[in-house]
Design a protein around this nucleic acid. Structure first.
Lengths: 138, 138
DNA sequence: TTTCTTCTTTAGAAACGTTCTAAAGTGTTG
DNA sequence: CAACACTTTAGAACGTTTCTAAAGAAGAAA
């Protein structure tokens, strides 16, 4: 789960993208350590504070390109922001409503059963479970 | 499941809201027939074409007031729009990715089991399951 | 290397859905 | 009725995301 810069280069090239400075820097922030959940704004801030100058447009471009390449997955939990998850395997999420933090729930730790007959002429694209949590009031 | 205008008046008053012309018209569109899933824009269009002049701000005000009163529930399925559901009982959804349509899945038709231990100090606020579907390609 | 092509980045403008503001309007109470 | 509180509204403002068009960087070929 620790990718060095050669690994990142390879990951990017495999996605048919050019290993530009900005792209490498973003890939490093996203993929070098373990799994992450980021918003565009957060990634932008992190890039800036790590000394890399990247425009917001580039952040969005890359988040979408990585998503199209299957390197990221978009998670819809908040109607005002998009989250991107570096874990692209099927799994679910805890969402902390107060802090806006996302946390993975491995697929095998939660089961969804008896999905009813799908609407006529459709097939499943994904099954997303979001367990929304708040601070316990006791 | 068919509410007449007296029922709507009562529903509104019970929520500690005044039965204004606009509110009654919106309540009629939302609650008079069976369950519905609407976006602000859609409700605005419907109001307009049914001859009622309502500003968008009023649409939002009322959607939020109805939600706060427990008459509506917000469903997060699309990062660019908010959906409001007139079915406030626990249940899940099919979401047609292409058309943006939502369809209820009654709670007892789908089961979510083995929710893992919650993050420290939290409690569940809700468990949302969204089965995203697309047109079947065969 | 040079040149050519294609992809990428960028600032800034624009778009989009939503919220805010403050003034005018309406419902309720006594 | 007066007095008050709530509601609606146009339009401005907001925050996030997308677009535009021009400049810059990477890759391929010779």
């Amino acid at each position: 789960m620790h990718l060095n810069s050669e690994d990142l280069r390879h990951k990017i090239k495999t996605a048919n993208l050019r290993p530009t400075q900005q792209r490498l820097a973003l890939a490093d922030l996203l993929f070098a350590q373990g799994n992450r959940h980021v918003t565009a704004e957060r990634l932008h801030n992190e890039a800036m504070s790590s000394g890399v100058t990247v425009s917001l447009a580039t952040i969005y471009n890359n988040l979408h390109q990585f998503t199209a390449a299957g390197l990221l997955r978009e998670v819809v939990v908040d109607s005002s922001r998009s989250y991107f998850d570096t874990n692209v395997d099927p799994h679910h999420h805890f969402f902390h409503e107060k802090t806006g933090e996302l946390e993975d729930i491995p697929r095998n730790e939660l089961s969804v059963d008896n999905i009813p007959t799908l609407p006529e002429g459709t097939e499943i694209s994904s099954v997303d479970v979001i367990v929304r949590v708040t601070a316990r009031r006791d």
